[in-house]
Design a protein around this nucleic acid. Sequence first.
DNA 1: TTAGGGTTAG
Length: 607
Amino acid sequence: MRASFPAAARSSVPASLPAALKSCTALGLRALAASLHALALRSGAFADRFVANALLNLYCKLPPASYPSPVMHGTARVSQVAALESARKVFDEMADKDTVSWNTLVVFCTEKGQHQEALGLIREMWGDGCKPDSFTLSSMLPIFAERADVRRGMEVHGFATRNGFGDDVFVGSGLINMYANCTRTDYSVKVFDNLPGRDAILWNSMLAGCAQNGSAEEALEICRRMLHSGIRPMPVTFSSLIPVCGNLASLHLGKQLHAYVVFGGLDGNVFITSSLIDMYCKCGDVSTARHIFDRLQSPDIVSWTVMIMGHALHGPEREALVLFDRMELGDVKPNDITFLAVLTACSHAGLVDKGWKYFNSMSDHYGIVPSLEHHAALADILGRAGKLEEAYNFISNMQIKPTASVWSTLLRACKVQKNTVLAEEVARRIFELEPRSMGSHVTLSNAYSSSGRWNEAATLRKSMRKKGMKKEPACSWIEVKNKRHVFVAHDKSHPWYERIVGALNVFSEQMARQGYVPNTEDVFQDIEEEQKSHVLCGHSEKLAMVFGIISTPPGTTIRVMKNLRVCVDCHTVTKFISKIVGREIVMRDANRFHHFKDGNCSCGDFW
DNA sequence: TTAGGGTTAG
């Protein structure tokens, strides 16, 4: 027999239920929530719009526990579909739906990445006579942000303006992010500047939008303006801004932010510490990164991954594998990005068997399907280890269609191994997919040159010029006394140019006495050997390094950054100079970090 | 009374 409620109790049920359900949702009280659901049905309170909406929200935030727990991608998807179905069931049973009901479901779908379902619901909502409001619009914008669909994002913007939501801060922050993701930070700034009042989250939206899209200078400018407006920096301000320092490789700026973090007592925030570890790695100071990492009580997956990647790029690569194995023993499970880091370590260390082992364990032990990037990483491991044929077969037999970037890892390996026959075949494949691939044209031309096939190299260069293709100019930079100095080859514009060349000549004489012979392999022009060594003398990384040495006190570590890979001769020269001046020289190129000390390099001459 | 915005790794 079902208990019936006294009339007085029944009337008070709807008033108190929404708040009670909200508390259950917030505190994760599933059992109590289930009882309240039963109560709502028995008492008739479910007919109340507020009660039903609160229940719907409960089902979205706290789906019934009987569904499989979301562990890996595949299972999580099943779980989300089941959760949506259960929420939808509650929704369909509602007699009195309003905009809140629709929005609750829409938000649930967008947050779970079920974008098609969300857009379908919004169409259904229109058909039901319920017009989208600011909640709906701010939920739609992240969908077009992720798809970088600026056209549809702009349609939402237009709708918002026409319907009186142009001043809404939630719609505003959605628009700022959407435009930033579509690489239109200029529009983000316009939206931001036109919003009334000031809102701390909007400032952080602006900052994050610029930071995530490579607009480093703009991000710093936003930060200056924010502080000037009296908005205090928040934890999220630091976790957005610190990666900017890493991308600029600006160690002095990164250290300043680190100091603010420590003084503000924010060094326990996992977002901030992960970004600090990554920043120090990217700025060439891996030992400080490791120092921070070693003091973490319980590193999360991002902290582990950035530290593993740090060792993969700086060496010792085996330390990256030691960390990975340590992580596997704990509670934190590796994800697809962690595997990219560990495969990078295998590539730089030349560990073919381990590379295969980790690659296979992704699907065997973790249910992670290897992506194009993982395939490219394994192809790189094989190619760099000289197993060109194995790499070729591996790429040819991939389950997913290889892209030009996968093939290009093999092309670079062919150049290093001086196998121009295979290089031509691989380049043919690349040009079928990407006829104007600049990097691959240059690599093939360099492969011809370093094998002495000057005519083919010249013909290829000529056809590149004809097609209007220009090689990215090499440049290197160094920070001295908080100022960045940028050099291109034979750059005479620097005020210290004469002094740099003078010092370089002195070093050349010392190196010659110690047995140095210029390595002209990377001079891709058919000129006399003597001229080639002159070309080598002016390479941007040498200019930046020598400037660093003569403008800093003895013993100071020199950190040079280069946009392309370091050339073979510069690598040899830097080894000699590190010994002559007794300094550690760190050089970041497009592929990894080189730590030169006492005449040796951490890459073991394998890069 | 019920729904929404900003952060770390490739």
